[in-house]
Design a protein around this nucleic acid. Sequence first.
DNA 1: TTCATACTTCGATCATAGCCGAAGCATCGA
DNA 2: TCGATGCTTCGGCTATGATCGAAGTATGAA
Lengths: 233, 233
Amino acid sequence: MKEGPVIASVAALLGDPARANILTTLMDGRALTVSELAEAAGVTLQTASGHLAKLDAANLLVAEKQGRHRYFRLSGPDVAQVLEALMGLAQRTGATRVRTGPKDAALRSARVCYDHLAGERGVALLRGARQQGLIDGEKDLALTEKGRAFFADFGIDLAALGKSRRPVCRACLDWSERHSHLGGALGAAILSEMIDKKWVRRAAGRVLTFTCEGVEGFEAAFTSIQNTSSQAA
Amino acid sequence: MKEGPVIASVAALLGDPARANILTTLMDGRALTVSELAEAAGVTLQTASGHLAKLDAANLLVAEKQGRHRYFRLSGPDVAQVLEALMGLAQRTGATRVRTGPKDAALRSARVCYDHLAGERGVALLRGARQQGLIDGEKDLALTEKGRAFFADFGIDLAALGKSRRPVCRACLDWSERHSHLGGALGAAILSEMIDKKWVRRAAGRVLTFTCEGVEGFEAAFTSIQNTSSQAA
DNA sequence: TTCATACTTCGATCATAGCCGAAGCATCGA
DNA sequence: TCGATGCTTCGGCTATGATCGAAGTATGAA
């Protein structure tokens, strides 16, 4: 932190792969524990702890102690905004790898974003849920009455979701698509339920593969625009 | 450049003090030689050469050879935008030095952001243009019919702007103010016209100084709320 | 109290990359 | 052709900092 321009110290913090992983993991606004972030970044607990201390000291993150856990989240939307701008720049300047292998295509189609569905399918889910009036709001999402009924039918214990500290609905910006998908406790519960229903399987890494009936069920439930009731009954 | 998120490689480039110095020096949109940038960054020629090669390889800069000189400039306005966003974040999180010198005050008042007006004046311009109904929209800005007439009167060739690939209007977040100012092709054309009109002079670095008539003209044109026509005729 | 979990701190290792001196190209002017 | 200027490349030095094992601290559970 010599006399150089102020941006260098901040940018250097974002420039380490482990820290960048941590920050992008937190981009949906949730608060995660040190261990969860260590796993997400692919480093050991003590390494992550060091990184988090630095990010905290720089006020990019805020910590919240709860029992023996320490939850970290981004200190504000401006942090996420800078990260997003950097992603855009990285894409425009071609820092993204050229060869778009089959794995990348699979990743774009459907993947896990921490614990909920992301990628094309994730974006489609939220768009469909909005069109059917299950979820309301642009940035701050909320379940409608109709949505409560629908997801209860779908097999989700809404009462349990309400009890956790975690927000039920959360808009999470998708890096491959340019729209939001559904995060939060509900997003996690939906993915979990979809796995139980054998609609989708976790493949290597973050990739998710839909089964045949999974595609059918998913499209009937979420991406059908015409009839907005009478599903999943 | 391991498998980490794409932002890390870009951010790491911005994270070195010498490179950050180079980039912020180029933020006014000019093209400078290797030696000039080496001096600005406070490193030797060969060190600067290495940094510039990296920035060039990452497409953050573009090089232009002219005789035995090599001129570098930012590869686009989006680079400047990211740098501004980083400055804002650095300031908000307290990475900025405490002492706010007189030069900083001048910078806050009016400066060049890549090729358009930024600082208090820049924010005032966009705010005024919005209030007068010259420009519409919150995030995605657009010229209104009234705006077209106004800026044509002001001396700007709107047809020429439309021809370039660059967006005509662009909201660009200001790091010193907390509001947007006007970027894009129109923003650049306005600044250029204001310099032609001798409303404003480029001082050292990115600082812009308004002349007396410049202040008058500017306030009459943009920051007057009451009468929304009959300017710049 | 005792153990387990979650996290932090310490210490040592190691790789990366910034830095500059020296030498090598390339272009310009004479 | 020759030297001067602008820039690049090479090689070696050095500092920084990322990493993890091991040990230490705090909280919760039994």
